[in-house]
Amino acid sequence: MTLPSRNQFRVAATAAELARFREQAWRLYEPAPPTELAAFGQHWRLRPGLTFTPFANAVRCTAHCAFCSEELQRYDGHQLTARRLIDDYPAYFARLREVLRPFRHWPLGLSLSGLEATAEPRWLRELLATLTALEAEGVVFDEKVLYTNGSGLATSPDLALALQDFGLTRLELSRCHDDEGVNQQIMRFNRNQPIRHNAVYAHTVGWLHGHLAVKNSCILTRLGIATLPDVERYLAWAAGLGVRQVVFRELSRLEGSYLPNVFTDWIEQQRVPIEPLLGAVAPTLDAPRPGWKYAGSTFGYYYYNEHYRYQQLEVIFETSSYPALQAANATNVLQKLILHSDGTLAGDWDPDSRVLSRAQPQPAATQP
């Protein structure tokens, strides 16, 4: 089976080409021809390489990140999945099996995200068991990624073993600063979460290294990591924990497409544009900062990455655009599949947009 590519990797050959990559970013992504699939009584056009997310919302999140995308609502949005918890596990997992069976033998990327998937270990274990059973029936996950703040992995370390048995491709572990006090100002963990302390974080990362590929994810903010010296200090700290891959992400560009609230205000006030950092790392292709080596660029349908080698680490700088994501979602090609906590399968983070299938209401119990 030829597996589809989720993005496009290119290596700039000249300084002018690298400058064009940076200027155009995700706009240089070239969509592959879509594939048709019959499901739920209709024919759908799918982007090759699309991903599937079973929205993690069994309990409230263990942190309250100031940049949380689940607190953003589009002007054309209807409701937020984050507001509705998964309160009926048997019904949820039966629905999960139902919505994935039409996609058997179609390669999907699995993206475990939403709120915090590790916050409720029983739900996560049952999710992994259900997905494993579906794989035995022919569902294909060619990449499996968990995006997590690590809270449940600190309190239930055996989850790492379950994820290892499941064949997780990598774990993207969020940490926005090497100083736990500054990190807490940004990520705002609940006070009863041990992972907020650096000593617990370091112990957890050390345990994870024995079982999973760990990639650190750091959101760039004016309050936290904002300059290249900040980046290099963070990398020295991460390397000391045994981490070998780190991504620094610019806060996603909203460009006025979301209703104003305290989260949109914080995002715009704290935004650290990626361009000055890229210019500091590699002003031109021929004259990078000492110790840094350009390795290539990745283009996605709403994001752009630059890859570097720094000492023994792979370092990625990423920028993304929510309006570009929405523009892709507005086409007649499905870019992503999300199973929302109410059982709706949609091609959008809004459960009332790009709906493929809704859960049938359960009959009311009869009184004896």
Rank of each mutant, 00 (worst) to 15 (best):
L146Q: 01
L146W: 05
L146M: 09
L146K: 00
L146C: 02
Y147V: 14
Y147A: 02
Y147R: 07
N149M: 00
N149L: 04
N149T: 08
G150S: 09
G150T: 03
G150Y: 01
S151C: 07
S151T: 11
S151R: 10
G152A: 08
G152D: 03
G152N: 01
G152V: 07
A154M: 06
A154W: 04
A154I: 01
A154E: 08
T155G: 07
S156E: 13
S156Q: 10
P157T: 03
P157K: 05
P157H: 06
P157I: 01
P157S: 12
P157R: 01
P157G: 09
D158R: 08
D158T: 13
D158S: 14
L159Q: 00
A160E: 06
A160S: 14
A160K: 11
A160I: 04
L161A: 15
L161D: 13
L161C: 11
A162Y: 03
A162D: 07
A162T: 02
L163P: 00
L163R: 04
L163T: 03
Q164S: 06
Q164D: 07
Q164P: 07
D165N: 07
D165H: 06
F166M: 10
F166T: 01
F166A: 03
F166V: 00
F166K: 04
F166I: 03
G167D: 03
L168W: 02
L168F: 01
L168T: 00
L168C: 02
L168N: 00
L168E: 00
T169M: 05
T169Y: 04
T169H: 08
T169D: 03
R170K: 13
L171K: 02
L171A: 03
L171I: 02
E172D: 13
E172W: 08
E172I: 05
L173G: 04
L173H: 04
L173K: 02
S174G: 11
R175H: 10
C176Y: 13
C176N: 15
C176L: 13
H177V: 10
H177L: 12
D178Y: 11
D179Q: 09
D179G: 05
D179T: 04
D179M: 03
E180L: 07
G181H: 13
G181Q: 14
G181C: 09
G181S: 13
G181D: 12
V182F: 12
V182T: 14
N183A: 15
N183Y: 05
Q184K: 12
Q184V: 11
Q185N: 09
